[in-house]
Write a protein that binds this DNA or RNA. Structure first.
Length: 149
DNA sequence: TCATAATACCGGA
DNA sequence: TCCGGTATTATGA
């Protein structure tokens, strides 16, 4: 029996919700709420996200299940090491794990756990780079972390 | 500035 | 397998 739960934090740009399966987060959505039944033991996830968006919490850390190729996981691990409030380029990540900048972009595009894997901290050499949920979210998150753009 | 090549990976045919 | 498409970058005119 799979239990699907939605948690929602409201932000200036809309809801942020977490898809929970078996007690762990499997997907985070920026801008839309998942269909599902609200249950109270979802509180740990909600409080972390509320803490992040209010600026109190700088580390998004809760149980997750990550699915992807070995390569994608390498990229995601590296991105997770980027400190709060700082940015790196696609090329910088690529160099560290021995691949190409475009391949890094490919891996980040398939990231289902934004915030937990802070791909908004990866920007292009000139400009912002892409973002699955829309540029406005990338700008919003960087601004929240105090990054000057 | 603008086009283009180099590049690693992925998904579909 | 092969092939076209990227959330990139470096280079040359």
């Amino acid at each position: 029996m799979i239990r699907i739960v939605q948690t929602v934090v409201q932000t200036r740009l809309g809801p942020v919700s977490v898809l929970i399966d078996g007690g762990v987060a499997v997907e985070i959505s920026l801008g839309r709420a998942f269909e599902g039944i609200k249950i109270e033991d979802v509180e740990p996830f909600r409080s972390v996200l509320k803490g992040y968006f209010s600026g109190r919490i700088r580390e998004i850390d809760f149980p997750v299940r990550i699915e992807g190729t070995e390569f994608q996981k390498r990229v995601w691990e590296e991105v997770r090491r980027i400190p709060y409030g700082t940015v790196r380029s696609y090329g910088w990540i690529a160099e560290r794990i021995g691949t190409s900048p475009r391949a890094v972009g490919m891996a980040l595009k398939t990231n289902r756990l934004p915030l937990y894997i802070p791909c908004h901290r990866v920007v292009s050499k000139e400009g912002l780079g892409g973002f699955s949920s829309g540029f406005e979210w990338k700008e919003f998150l960087l601004e929240l972390e105090g990054v000057v753009i």
